[in-house]
Design a protein around this nucleic acid. Structure first.
Length: 581
RNA sequence: GGGCGCGUGGCCUAGCUGGAUAUGGCACUUGCCUCCUAAGCAAGCAGUCAAGGGUUCGAAUCCCUUCGCGCCCGCCA
């Protein structure tokens, strides 16, 4: 039994099935066969044990084996029935005990329903970490959404999660921006009056001047050198500007319900000497080479391939590079966590491979885990700051709320303006997050407004609507849930719609645990859709308020349990659960 | 030149530790509001799972080749 077995009704069933299968296999003389279970297609049961592997090993017909195994399993506990079919042993869960377990847990755990027990594992989850030079655009917006959703899911599953943003305030890009802010006079107004947009015109112009005027480039280099050698004036100014930009970016993230627990400033790692320490260690390595004053590691033997297998970690003037500092950062992270996870764009894959090799070379036994995501592009191609084809997260947020407001107005005439605006915000921002979270991270996304702000079908409003419907029933019921809710549910909820809904509600803890362990956010979005869809069917076919006696009370309890399952799923996805819409 | 990832009905997508008729959604056609909010429900239409070969009793899933798309191979971050 896993630590949280008592909290997970489906897990309990799975364990009973495993035990029963092991005993049955032993009874027909088969030892040490790993029991692998799968989910059969609709209508064939709840769990299946395929006998084909076994058939090959024993040189026996899988159909016969399945029948022999099935005949040795008795219906008991949560196992309701066992049938052999075409080489599979299909098992059905006992609806009464599942209802009892799931309903009682959902009703008592409430907003904790779905949670796994504390694992005592410290997770440091780094996400977003974009350069503080300008606003976040949607090409990168997957990062905070995937990162925050994963953090929420892992927290729910019982990990101790701290999210962190690594602020790159040392490199050339930031130095370029700071140089621009200090030396240029620009009348062009930024797109928005917001910290992250403020220095964009300066940054853009400074960049252009660097390309065209060598002496500007030299000045930026000089500033970079000062920054890395602790010149207090340069460091102070750079820090102020970075902070302003960072604050603007955080405002945007707060709007989509994302808050980051901690920040590590890259400059700190330079100041406190940890970068120098890493550099000294690297220089002692057998893989280190020097060329014209710059140092690099020769990583060919670490499976790094391509035109260049060198990994440079100091420039000729002795200053460090981004990845060198990132190496120091990872060593720091390891002291504060048991598991370090990075959410990164797929362009960082080689960099992470090199980092892993460098970690090995300096004798670290730890490596970060990485969730890579592919970039979001526009129908006309890649987003480009220079071509001016970027869509900022701020634009997306505004558009989402605006479109949602139109939808609310179409449907509701009875609400106050304030209430409509509030619902529009919840629904619009939900749609935005859901549409990013629902897609497997490694798949490319071509951004289209009508998809990103979809309000029906596979979308946040679909889930939120089911939740609002549940709330509406509960609000109108005028009665309190009974103490013996779980018991009457197990007796009275007998029709197909009720039972299928219970199965999905019962699955929440397993789904959360699975998503957390595999670090896959999109699977929870898919579960949410199934759950909401099943609730909507129930809503359509099973009257609650018009039912009578125990049946009414049992159905009300199921609505309440469903409400918690929906709400907690929404919460893990970072979406708000409106009580009306 | 090399490496990594992706390629599933007109469009988006799940499944990818090999297994029973390939999951949902959008769009389209057709029903359902005197009934707990129709942002919903039901039915229909629609698939050579990029192509070819191989392994296997069995391949969307594993292996090889090819094609297409993305990303990377900086003393940038």
């Amino acid at each position: 039994m896993p630590a949280n077995g008592d909290l997970d009704p489906l897990e309990a069933f799975r364990n009973q099935v495993k035990e029963a299968l092991e005993a049955a296999l032993e009874a027909i003389g088969i030892d040490e066969e790993p029991v692998v279970l799968e989910k059969p297609p609709q209508g064939m049961g709840d769990l299946a044990f395929p006998c084909f592997q076994l058939a090959r090993r024993l040189r026996r017909n899988p159909v016969d084996i399945a029948e022999a195994v099935a005949s040795k399993i008795a219906a008991q506990g949560m196992i309701d029935s066992v049938k052999a079919k075409g080489g599979y042993v299909n098992l059905n869960v006992n609806s009464e005990s599942l209802a009892r377990a799931a309903i009682s847990q959902a009703l008592s755990a409430k907003d904790r329903f779905g949670a796994g027990s504390a694992k005592g594992v410290r997770v440091l989850l780094e996400h977003t970490s974009v350069n503080p030079t300008g606003p976040i655009h949607i090409g990168r917006a997957r990062n905070p959404i995937i990162g925050d959703t994963l953090a929420r899911i892992m927290r729910k599953a019982g990990y101790d999660v701290v999210t962190e943003f690594y602020v790159n305030d040392v490199g050339r890009q930031v130095a370029t921006m700071t140089w621009g802010a200090k030396n240029l006079t620009i009348n062009e107004k930024p797109e928005r009056d917001k910290g992250d947009h403020r220095y964009v015109p300066f940054y853009r112009e400074a960049h252009r001047r660097c390309d065209e005027e060598p002496e500007v480039l030299e000045e930026v280099d000089a500033l970079l050198y000062k920054l890395e050698h602790g010149d207090s004036e340069a460091v102070g100014m750079n820090r102020r500007i970075s902070e302003t930009v960072l604050e603007g970016m955080m405002e945007s993230l707060h709007q989509i319900n994302i808050r980051i627990d901690g920040f590590t400033w890259e400059s700190r790692l330079v100041e406190d000497g940890s970068v120098d320490k890493v550099i000294s260690k690297l220089k002692l390595s057998d893989f280190c080479r020097e060329s014209e004053g710059a140092h690099h590691l020769e990583l060919e033997s670490f499976g790094i391939t391509g035109r260049d297998t060198r990994w440079v970690f100091t420039r000729s003037d002795g200053t460090s590079l981004y990845t060198t500092r990132d190496l120091a950062y990872h060593l720091d992270k390891f002291t504060r966590s048991d598991v370090a996870i990075n959410v990164l764009g797929e362009d960082q894959k080689l960099g992470m491979q090199q980092l892993a090799a460098a970690l090995e070379i300096i004798g670290s036994d730890r490596k970060p885990e990485t969730v890579f995501y592919a970039f979001v592009s526009l129908p006309e191609g890649r987003m480009s700051t220079r071509k001016g084809t970027v869509v900022s997260l701020d634009d997306l947020i505004d558009e989402a709320i605006e479109r949602a407001y139109e939808e609310v107005r179409k449907r509701r005439t009875d609400l106050t303006e304030k209430r409509m605006k509030e619902i529009a915000r919840i629904v619009g921002l939900g749609a935005l997050r859901y549409n990013i979270a629902r897609i497997q991270a490694e798949k490319q996304i071509v951004f289209k407004w009508e998809e990103a702000l979809n309000f029906e079908g596979s979308s946040a409003p679909f889930l939120q609507y089911a939740h609002a419907r549940a709330c509406s029933i509960l609000r109108k019921s005028g009665s309190r849930l009974r103490e013996d809710s779980a018991e009457i549910c197990s007796r009275k909820l007998v029709n197909h719609h009720e039972r299928e809904l219970i199965k999905l509600v019962a699955a929440l803890p397993s789904v959360v645990g699975e998503c957390a362990d595999t670090r896959r956010v999109h699977a929870l979005a898919a579960y949410g859709q199934d759950l909401a869809g099943q609730f909507n069917q129930f809503y359509r076919y099973v009257p609650v308020l018009k039912a009578e006696g125990d049946t009414r009370d049992a159905r009300l309890a199921l609505v309440e349990a469903s409400k918690w399952a929906l709400r907690n799923t929404l919460d893990c996805l970072g979406l708000e659960a409106p009580e009306e819409m």
